[in-house]
Design a protein around this nucleic acid. Sequence first.
DNA 1: ATGTTTGCAAATTATTTGCAGCAAA
DNA 2: TTTGCTGCAAATAATTTGCAAACAT
Lengths: 160, 160
Amino acid sequence: MNIAEQLDKINRQLTAKGYKLTPQREMTLEVLLENEKDHLSAEEVFMLVRQRFPEIGLATVYRTLELLAELSIVQKMNFGDGVARFDLRMDGQAHMHHHLICKVCGALEEIKDDWLTDLEQRLAREYGFQVTDHRLDFTGVYQTCRNNNEPCKRTGKAVS
Amino acid sequence: MNIAEQLDKINRQLTAKGYKLTPQREMTLEVLLENEKDHLSAEEVFMLVRQRFPEIGLATVYRTLELLAELSIVQKMNFGDGVARFDLRMDGQAHMHHHLICKVCGALEEIKDDWLTDLEQRLAREYGFQVTDHRLDFTGVYQTCRNNNEPCKRTGKAVS
DNA sequence: ATGTTTGCAAATTATTTGCAGCAAA
DNA sequence: TTTGCTGCAAATAATTTGCAAACAT
């Protein structure tokens, strides 16, 4: 599914709920679609959208992201660095992908497999809890990073 | 292990790194120990500590929590409500407990089992990634809550 | 003496809100 | 012509920082 098609689909989702796909919203979605791999903060989205739509206001980006999160079109996340990050969530996936966060190089890799179906069934059985979503992040170190044992380029933090 | 013993242990951890267990830090730790089940925000910790040590400043609580997180004595977490929450992490557990977050009643249940050892071995093998920590939260609904289908008492949010 | 820790107040950062104008149904 | 959507500026909320005083080693 290419970007135009995806936009079209989202447009239908919006209209179905009585919202409009304004130029601002469209540009925001384009940025999200083009950077599907990253986990952009509102500020980052803002700066990227601005490049193609300079009149846009930061508040609009926030409002758009909030709306999209409300409709489960994007996923709002928190990695503990004090900024909310946003991720497209295509084909109404019930589940998030997982993350590997390397303490050395700061890399944030995504794992698309869903490893938790068994656990979720167990939760339903043993805890009477019906899972609708989950979040699974691993912190650690890549072997390759452990070798060249230097502090992280981004944060400057030492390997712990 | 009772509270006095735990404090003692933490005291040794602090001294080992050249930090002191000041009265403020001790009171903060007591509050954390007594509320091990909750996930308190800095503000909540502050208000509880204040009851027994009224002179304490909010900044001190923040600094203490940050220090304790640095030393892996507490775990700093984010559940997406815009506040950082803190949890004691006894016996240097390598791993966090997991969470069940009910969308109806807002309950936040802890699951102490570690269900991810298999996955972590797989990550080491297949991705060359050595896990040091992880985070696993499930969002969903308790069966019992689904029945009385009312919005959440805390947040007022409707069941989705 | 030296360096740590504290309380307070001020600063910073991320996010939200009030409001007047504009645009679309 | 009502309602939604926007940009701007101001407000809020959480957290951090500067600083001088108190404390501990």
